[in-house]
Nucleic acid binder design. Sequence first.
DNA 1: TTGAAAGCGGTACCAG
DNA 2: CTGGTACCGCTTTCAA
Lengths: 356, 356
Amino acid sequence: MIGVNEGPPANARRRPATLHDVARAAGVSYATASRALNGSDRTVRAENVARVHAAAAQLGYSPHLSAQAIARGSTSTAALVVSDVDDPYFSSIAAGVTEAAEAAGLIVTMAIADRSPDLELQIVRSLRGQRPRAIVIAGSRIAGTETRAELIDELTAYRTAGGRVALISQHDLPFDTLCIDNHGGARRLALALAEQGHRTFAVIHGSDSIRTSHDRRAGFLDGLRQAGLTVDPRYSIEVPFTRDGGAAGARALLARGVEEVDVAFAVNDTMAIGAMTVFRDAGLTPGADIGVAGFDDIGSAVDVVPALTTVRIPLRELGQAAMRVALADDAAGIVQIPTEVVLRDSTPLRPRPGRS
Amino acid sequence: MIGVNEGPPANARRRPATLHDVARAAGVSYATASRALNGSDRTVRAENVARVHAAAAQLGYSPHLSAQAIARGSTSTAALVVSDVDDPYFSSIAAGVTEAAEAAGLIVTMAIADRSPDLELQIVRSLRGQRPRAIVIAGSRIAGTETRAELIDELTAYRTAGGRVALISQHDLPFDTLCIDNHGGARRLALALAEQGHRTFAVIHGSDSIRTSHDRRAGFLDGLRQAGLTVDPRYSIEVPFTRDGGAAGARALLARGVEEVDVAFAVNDTMAIGAMTVFRDAGLTPGADIGVAGFDDIGSAVDVVPALTTVRIPLRELGQAAMRVALADDAAGIVQIPTEVVLRDSTPLRPRPGRS
DNA sequence: TTGAAAGCGGTACCAG
DNA sequence: CTGGTACCGCTTTCAA
């Protein structure tokens, strides 16, 4: 068939076939082979196309993407930065981002910033070298970080060079941003709970320097205020923004006496779930003795018992939207992602009897 | 300072700075700039190094990784293929893989095969063009897939060209593979449950064409056999290998009558959790009226109520090990990843009273 | 220690 | 429609 019979034994470690090899094997010129294989406008005789493809298959040719990138001046890569894939919040977003990227024919490069602004900056720097078509960053920006300015510089340089960036939930940076309506969602949650008759609340939250935590807490308090209610400062507990933080918050709450509390609102679902476990271990039945609510609606929110009342964020869609915004030609500015209150069994329909 | 003052307005869309620009700005030659910035052996006068670095910073220079890759003949990328990131099993693995890759200074490219062997093949093909240093594939291979041979071809070509591959849990392919001890883990689980006094079991499993499901079921039956027990075929239920599949399995079980069943073993945790929810909705208390056990020990296994008895796989470590194996110089063959039975509250310490 | 220049694998323009 | 060839951005001999 095709004349390829020189070379070392079949399974030796061998330099991958180049376009040159393919062209020679097919008996056509370099340029023709290129056109037949990856050319945009096909002006190659059918017979030659066939020969080239046959040769390529025979040789196991795979176009060198880096070489293409350099020759074409653009890559087929998009980059994603998350704080931690092994967290349902981020993994759902990552799934969405990846879907949208693959739909656009892009390979996605993922980096994990491990909740460290320093690492995040370093990652963006190194990612920039890849010349991805877009960079999507999902993470909980920490207020007043020193690296903020440097991150902005880096992203600005990237964008100036033609790159596109989209941020998830880091409002205050000058780039297209998808904002979750943390404040509004938490506010509506508070109103819904007040409507159910709950009167006494605890808030288990992270540091106010974590914007997300701050906004959710503020929104919740706002909602309560709207309903003519407040939270006793004793019941406002700051802990790490994690499952174990939520558990610690619940323990702190127990120590301060929890008889009065109708509902403990934890600013994210994993914290709420951690808290629920602690309450249960202390002999309380969540949803009966004490209500618990979270935020995010991660997958397992429906699998815990009782199912968790929360504020739903369409995480996967959010990820998709982020990549689409990044890839779009025109700037999107701030895109608000709506949230939705989901009342489940972890907050009883009525507060415990004997209350006002 | 450094003489850069031609060019369009500052924030226009501008071609990213090249090494050439940097060299000119620093007043040194192209080669010197290269050496100062990314050269391995530094034989550049300190003063020039400083000038070059200053110019690079000034210009926001970022080395073009594709160009480096092509010039050096090797990339700084590793690739990961998973079935679905938005699944705690895979996201934990992905976290581990990424950790190990970043530790090795590699950027990771992640693709999602969506549990489709076709897509998986297509992904590997396209990934090969990236010339990653290693490809790690985590997915549940489906027996007798037509694409199997093509996948082997593709990976073989990749490896022949100097690439390294590691597979997670797809025993029968001729590449380094990390195998989870599914059979052994399930067997030991069965023995442990038998030891607790349980006698009647149900198995909720996926299609036998899913290797993982098959092995776990077989192992479980083996363990029971060792304990002189069997599973009534009526209680062996085939459903999709997903959470909803588990739920469906539980419903089927309820329809067949569940009074006799001491423990329902679902071949993975998400299935078990789905089943547990169905049992509860049917008025049964998991862990009291019926035992439930799973496999994997995903993060939420401890947060469901009752906490789930399962077989623990060190998922994150598994991911790390996979990348390390892939990156290592010498072939590892088959690496067995041990599993560990974890008895929790979802399987009561003793079977219900009134049983033998 | 430095500069010039030959690649690396492809793309795309320009004549034939 | 096809072949020749000038790049793309960077690394790395090879001389100077």
